[in-house]
Write a protein that binds this DNA or RNA. Sequence first.
RNA 1: GCAGGGGUGGCGAAGCGGUCAAACGCGUAAGGCUUAGGACCUUAUGACUCAGGUCUUCGUGGGUUCGAAUCCCACCCCCUGCACCA
Length: 907
Amino acid sequence: MAKYIHDKLDEKWRKAYEKSGIYNGKIDTSKKKAFLTVPVMYPDGYLHLGHLYTWTRADIYARFMRMKGYNVLWPQGFHFTGGPLVGFSLRIKNREEAVMKILKMYKVSQEDIDRFAEDPLYLGNYFAKSIRGDFDAAGMSIDWSKNFSLSYTKNYSKFVEWQFRRLRELGLIAQGKHPVIWCPREDTSLGDHDRLEGEGESPVEFTIIKFRLGDLILPAATLRPETLEGATNLWVNSKIPYKKVTFNDGETWIVSDKFVDKSKYQKKINKVEDFDIKSIISKTVENPVNHEAMPILDADFVDDNLNTAIVMSVPMHAPFDFVYWNRLKKSGSKFYREAKKIIDVSGKDSIDIENAASSKTSAEHLERLTKKVYQSEYNSGVFNSNSKLLSGLSVKEGRQRMISELKEIGAYDVFYETSGRVVCRCGAVGVVNIVEDQWFIRYSDEDLKRKSLEAVEHMNIYPDEIRLQLVNAIMNMEDKAATRTGGLGTSLPWDKKWLIEPLSDSTIYMAYYTIADLIEKLDEKYIDDDLFNYLFLNAKPKSKYPEIVNEMKRSFEYWYPVDMRVTAKELIPNHIAFFIMNHVAMFDKNLWPRGLSINGWLVIDKLKMSKSKGNVKGITQTVETFGADATRLIASASNGMDDAEWNIDNVKGFVDRIEFLLDLVEAYNDMSGEDKLVDKYLHSRLMGLLKQVEYDYEHFRYRSAVFNAFFQSTDLLRFYLDFRGSSRSSLKSALEIISKMIHPIFPFVSEEINEKLGNKELLESYKSWPESAHTEQDITLEREFEVLNRTVDDIKNLIKILKLQLKSIKIGVADRAKFEVYNKVVGRLKEDRDLSKIYKEMGRDELVKKLIKNPNKLPDELRDYETELNVLKEAEGYISKLFKVKVQVSESSDDKAIPGKPKIEVE
RNA sequence: GCAGGGGUGGCGAAGCGGUCAAACGCGUAAGGCUUAGGACCUUAUGACUCAGGUCUUCGUGGGUUCGAAUCCCACCCCCUGCACCA
């Protein structure tokens, strides 16, 4: 038994590849090129199998392409821009428990931990190194000579500055105001990852309707200004404190105490005074649109965490309002009057608030109901004649109409509120701040969108469903805020207080890979916009450049555009869309991206479990335990972008089969059998698999690739040996094909097999992928081997049923005449399936009756008499070995012997 | 709300108009092996049968077709993303 000792084997071949320099992309104009990239990652922690999934998929592409004769460049950089490194450093500084536990688990020295807390760059470089080590251990064929970090590498920052000046020249940069969730304590924007609570919450625009009470303004905040004509009153809450705020524009508002703090980010405050809300309860304001009187009433559901804490009451369109309004009716209040319903919803979406909110009045129930009412009215509501202003309009139209009406009469304002509670890591509750001078990239530009869609149309996208998603993402693209105030990054060249944020400084960096190593050798004085214009936009050179610049230009022109970008699906609506759109904006059409391959998430079941046991498996540990090749099996977790559950038990079957192949590689040389039908079958099947596997690799269907290239092919070999196949040349050729088919996925073990077969060259050093096109498959023969397998199953079945002590087996293959009838029926069935007609045409043959008796099981494959007979005859020994009795195969004219289904007699 | 994806056996997951009771893997059961456990091997795993047979299933309800898990329509349910944040 050959033992699969992966660590030795891995090391041997890793070194061989390193020495060969195959991973280093060198210009070779005699070869077609393939430029592969995977997005840069943040070096803010250790790599785990989930990350490795994407990179392994990319690596398989790289290796497959090399075997197909392509010159492959696959560089990899890291991303330092923005918050992640700074954030991680801060968490270490705060000695957050979860973070410290991980660092301890990986045995990071105290000295390093202390430096992490002070120096995010040190931290980034530390983890970048660790991640590189993991990639190498797992056999990634990355060209590290072109590694750099965004935007930490100084020359890359210059490249980004050039990009932004160019975008500005193209009219794709704009400045404007922008609502952002803000930490009032730290005075910075509050990103998702900086939040203790409220991930995914965003600013929501509320309409403020100004109700006037003398000089005072009662600002009711609402998401549904269109219901104003159905309003009966205002609600305030006497249990919460209110203030009288005078703003710089001269208006004085009555609002909750809590609102005052929030409002200063959106309006300039002049003066704040205490206010006794009870002093205005029961007074009346006027509805600014229909001039009806609206009393100010007390209600304890008014929440001062939300907005102004002045609520416009619309009982027939808001369940909470209805419940409280209904109480007035019951208590016989003088303020009660009939509330008007102004929006109708037809059909089954209609909700009767009177019914739904009368019996059950729990807050949860009312909240759910509110959502439903809001949705159904927004989607299919129409204003009825109770609304003078909006009658006949849909709710969507009515809202716009009402807003312009309110603007006209000076009763309109807006206020942004967070869509849910947001809490900063520092503990402060987040508010919405309106940033006045934010810089945007104008992704909404129609011309840019149009050209980007054109780019997408010409891209190879795997799986192709992604194309639709990408088209939608681009069509719906709005302007993107491209700058921020905190974190790491490149300053905006014309407004230095801003840093270019990470999704905006990482859109065309793939072009920089092609010069990343060379530019470091160039004198700084040449590195400016003129250089980049010359290199990337083919502008006339402004200076006389040293030779290295021409080398850079040749490199860019050889490798560009990006042929394949491999990434996980969450980047489609943002990074991938930006990547495409910036290429379209900056570069000529022939430099636009050409390919995209998307994967889902990898869910690692068993590893999580072992983690809780304290038995952590990072990449290094996994590779040490199972070997690089076995670790790479994760790539087979899924065919497309579905999330894949991965179970480390899969590795067991892998080792078993690898050892089988290694054994066979030792043993095949001693075999000396003749070539028989089974050898033809073996070859035919392998050719079929090869064709399938090639398709699988080309379409990034790696689950299927592993299944066919590895599991199916080893099953086939096992069958061949069980069948007593023993041809030395057949086995050698089979092992050769299999080792090549599995090589992109299992590069190291396949090289070992390849070497033992006597091949000296590395499989990626020449065009080694076997051709399958010229070799015809023998489908008829394959079918007859299926007949054999089915017959064996049937025999097993019979023995079980009869419970007999088996003495001998007789197999009767149908005679030549039956095959003729059979093939005639099959041929006829290809024309149409009118069974009664066929029955008439074919005559009252017993066999015809049998064949078409069950419409679900109509035969559809032609069969060959001689092949069937010969295959089964050759299989006599095989069947005899299986059942350990004498087997006799002969022709039979018995009715039970049907083509494809021989007669079986057991005794 | 907008956009995208999905509902198949105990589980994961193939199939995407015709040998589909449904690949492959896991789990489970029985047997072999073993001092025992693990690993490994064999068999079974929708129901009813017992000479290779029959019936019922692929979210729900309709439709197209000789034939549908696969195509069309409607409905129900689930997941993901929605931007200044990686």
